[in-house]
Nucleic acid binder design. Sequence first.
DNA 1: TTATTTTTGTTGTAAAAACAACAGAAATGT
DNA 2: ACATTTCTGTTGTTTTTACAACAAAAATAA
Lengths: 223, 223
Amino acid sequence: MERLEKYYNQIKNSPVFYGMNDEELKGLLECFNARVRKYEKEEMIIRQGDMISNIYLILDGAVNIEKDSYWGRRIIISRLGKNDNLALSFVGSKDVESSVDAITVEDTLVLILGYEKCTSMCQNACVRHKVLINNLFQILSKENIELIQKIENVSQKTIRDKLMTYFSNEAQKNHSNTFSINFNRQDLADYLNVDRSAMSFELSKLQKEGFIKYDKNHFELLS
Amino acid sequence: MERLEKYYNQIKNSPVFYGMNDEELKGLLECFNARVRKYEKEEMIIRQGDMISNIYLILDGAVNIEKDSYWGRRIIISRLGKNDNLALSFVGSKDVESSVDAITVEDTLVLILGYEKCTSMCQNACVRHKVLINNLFQILSKENIELIQKIENVSQKTIRDKLMTYFSNEAQKNHSNTFSINFNRQDLADYLNVDRSAMSFELSKLQKEGFIKYDKNHFELLS
DNA sequence: TTATTTTTGTTGTAAAAACAACAGAAATGT
DNA sequence: ACATTTCTGTTGTTTTTACAACAAAAATAA
């Protein structure tokens, strides 16, 4: 059991608890029976079919949201990192089981909040709860928009278009033409939903033709 | 201007206002400056780049959420109908403009709620607001899960797999092996992100091979 | 009704992707 | 440092898709 206090500041500044003062936060953490848990690399935090009643907040590390297509192919739906939430939508939808796996890609520290327990207890009384649900609403909004962007991404027709759309988005996020990505080649392929070797080939073609430059996981958009 | 009262019962039973009594609902509708608007077929309700500050609830009709890929190809992200919400995620994310178009596919009736106006007015006072935001949170959760499902769908590698995944989902929704779909062939192709003629070809192949039977827009899953 | 427009299915061809197999590079462990 | 494992790029082959062109069917309008 990790000590919660160590991460107190980070927790306080996470979107989940945005706008709360120390007292409110403390009360809420207690009410939620908050605890910190460490997951090893490649460990499953959530698996398909699980009923989710906790809110998971990544304190440190990285997590893949994945789905195994029934003929064995892996689909990476998203890659989450520090301060991201896990499977929030399955908390919001009552009686819906998770349709995805959440798997760590490295050693990962997670804050776990017993959402259900708290909401059933403090139903209407808890004032903090109002701020919280507002925050959750906004977080979900953002996730939603990112999912739409991902749909746009994988909906491109050629591997080249998928790559360039992805790179554009990353560059925009980074406010720069250069950026590093978290994915290795296989992961990127699974994220963009293409064959790895074909993608590798397309990458070097893009470089030869002068559209991009890259060294390992560092990329530069030219033109 | 359509009369709001006419749709009062429907509005009351929509997920947005779930769990509210008449008094609360009436107050909220007033606070939101609620109004009903009719859109003609193929009319744009929202277009890419719009700032969204209203909640849109479809009372009757059908709406496509679309995106034009920059090389002219149309992507249908989702098809919405009665009691569905439009672009809710863009309301939740402040200062984010819509990345999609919302276009009616037939004459459509929409309830429009001035979300921003209301929230700024009744900030903390309004009790009804708490129920509302809770509902919105759940609606967004559901949308989120559906988007994930759509990602899974378009992430299948062959046209056949996309079709069968889509059909399975539709059958499940309908609790039956037979179901009708809303899409015409071109729309379905744009939704599954494949070429229409190739899809048509695959459909008849699936029928010849005995996996499905179909007549126009009515389908049956065999085996 | 007939004419016109829209939708759907079919085919052949060209383009792109998946797949498999492998070699070199990089990372990891001992 | 060395051996071993993992990751990445390259190539040829097969499969699948997109695209274009067209005919048949269905829906719509006159």
